[in-house]
Structures are given as structure tokens and as C-alpha cells.
């Protein structure tokens, strides 16, 4: 009589097999053939060749677009954070009654449900082309993201500290200042920096749908087949993101 040390997981095996079969099916459906891949790579090579060397001749347009992107990122982060503070607090189920937290949670989920590019398109249609639409779209996206993180951070605090502050006779604002804020402040700052970081990234894209920033310049260069200028723009964006990454890593380290 042999004893089995491990029971075979037939569900997992079946699921993996099904996934493999679906991938094969999807490849045939999408007409991805070997020949298609080869021509694709050939085109890609020519494209890359035309990008080199990057052309920084129109640097003034480039700088203008980059600065606008940075402004969009900073403004939308600040607005998003300011709006997220009360939203996060109202959404925290340990401090707010259910009749407040439930609808606020719904609103935050709504902000998150649409991709920010779609929101940007909506705002371009609503308020017209330009940076205002980009700021509005990224503000909505920031709210959806950090208000949720704020709420979760508040839900994880120790209620014992809150109880102690409440017992001193402090009012609601005093309890927030002394019982809640110290417990969440450093995490909040971390979230804010993270959001600024990702807004910098996102602000380079909203221009493609006409919501201001370097994305518009990039899209125009694509349409005119100015691939060397495209390369210059892409390199600038990469440099900006790397720089932001470095700075935020520094700041987050300093916070710990």
C-alpha cells in the first residue's frame, strides 16, 4: 500500500492547459504568423534607423512641451492631494459612519474606473483643447488613486491612540490632529510623492488626445514623420522620469 505525500492539483493543471490552448487560439485569431513577425521586425529596423540621430534642433518646442507637462503634473497632483484628504477621511470606515463612507467609496471607485486617457478625452470634449483638460483629467485620476490609499492607511491606524486622545476631551479636529495624523503622516507623504511621480509620467501622454503637454508635440512629430525629433522627445521624457525616480527615492528614504 503506497501512501501519497502530495495530492495532485487537477484544477490547476486543467486551468494551465486551458490557458495554453487559449493562447494558441488567440494567435491564430489575430493572424499573427511567422511571416508577419518577420516583416514587422524589418519595418521596425527601418523606423529605428530613421530615429537616429535624435534631432534636438527644435529644442524650444521641446522645452515648452516638457515644461507644460511638468506644470500639468504638479498642478494635478496638488489638486488631487488636497481633494483626496477629506475624501480619504470620509471613506475610512473606522472613522466615518457607513452612510458617509459608502457613497464616498463609490465616488472614489468611479474616479478609478475609467483610464485617465479616456477621462482626458472627455475633458477635452468638455472644456476644449489644452492643459486645463490635462490637469482636470489627472486630478480625477489622482483622486481615485490616493484617496483610496489614504482611506486604507486611516483604516489601519491604532484606535487605542485615537481613544486616548478622545478621552482627553479633544474635539473631532483635535482627535484628527493628534490621534490620526501622526499615525498616517509619513505614509501620506509617501503616497503623494508616488502620485507626483506617476502624474509626471501620465502628463506626457495626455497631450496625445489634445490635453496639453509634451504628448501633443510628440503626436505631431509622429504625424509629420519627424522620427529624429520623436527620438529627441522620447529621450527627454526618459530623462525626466529617471530624474523624478531618483528624487522620489531620495525623499522616500529620508522619510523612513
Amino acid at each position: 500500500m503506497t501512501r501519497t505525500a502530495f495530492t495532485p492539483n487537477w484544477t490547476a493543471r486543467g486551468a494551465l492547459l486551458a490557458l495554453a490552448l487559449y493562447c494558441v487560439f488567440a494567435v491564430t485569431q489575430l493572424d499573427i504568423s511567422w511571416a508577419r513577425i518577420l516583416t514587422g521586425f524589418g519595418e521596425g529596423g527601418r523606423f529605428l534607423a530613421r530615429m537616429w540621430p535624435p534631432n534636438f534642433e527644435r529644442w524650444d518646442t521641446l522645452v515648452e512641451g516638457m515644461l507644460e507637462s511638468i506644470q500639468i503634473a504638479v498642478l494635478s497632483s496638488v489638486a488631487g492631494i488636497i481633494l483626496s484628504l477629506p475624501l480619504g477621511l470620509m471613506a475610512a470606515r473606522n472613522l466615518s459612519p457607513a452612510w458617509v463612507s459608502a457613497p464616498v467609496r463609490g465616488f472614489i471607485a468611479l474616479c478609478r474606473s475609467l483610464h485617465y486617457v479616456i477621462v482626458a478625452i472627455l475633458f477635452v470634449k468638455a472644456v476644449g483643447f489644452g492643459a486645463l483638460a490635462g490637469v482636470a483629467a489627472l486630478t480625477v485620476a489622482s483622486m481615485g488613486f490616493i484617496a483610496k490609499l489614504f482611506a486604507e492607511a486611516i483604516e489601519e491606524i491604532s484606535m487605542k491612540q485615537v481613544e486616548a486622545v478622545r478621552a482627553t476631551g479633544a474635539g473631532p479636529a483635535g482627535v484628527l490632529l493628534y490621534g490620526v495624523l501622526p499615525q498616517v503622516a509619513s505614509r501620506f507623504v509617501g503616497f503623494c510623492i508616488y502620485q507626483l511621480d506617476s502624474n509626471l509620467r501620465n502628463s506626457t501622454l495626455v497631450g496625445i488626445v489634445g490635453a496639453g503637454g509634451i504628448g501633443g508635440t510628440l503626436f505631431a512629430a509622429f504625424k509629420r514623420f519627424d522620427y529624429d525629433f520623436v527620438a529627441a522627445i522620447l529621450l527627454s521624457i526618459i530623462a525626466l522620469i529617471f530624474l523624478a525616480e531618483l528624487v522620489s527615492a531620495r525623499v522616500r528614504k529620508a522619510l523612513q
Binding site: K160, E163, A164, V165, T168, P182
Partner: peptide, 11 residues
């Protein structure tokens, strides 16, 4: 009030 687990604001 004095608490069992002190309940100081840690930060």
C-alpha cells in the same frame, strides 16, 4: 484616563 497599553500617540 490611564490605559492598559498606555495608548500614547507613538509617533
Amino acid at each position: 484616563m490611564v490605559f492598559q497599553e498606555y495608548n500614547l500617540v507613538e509617533r
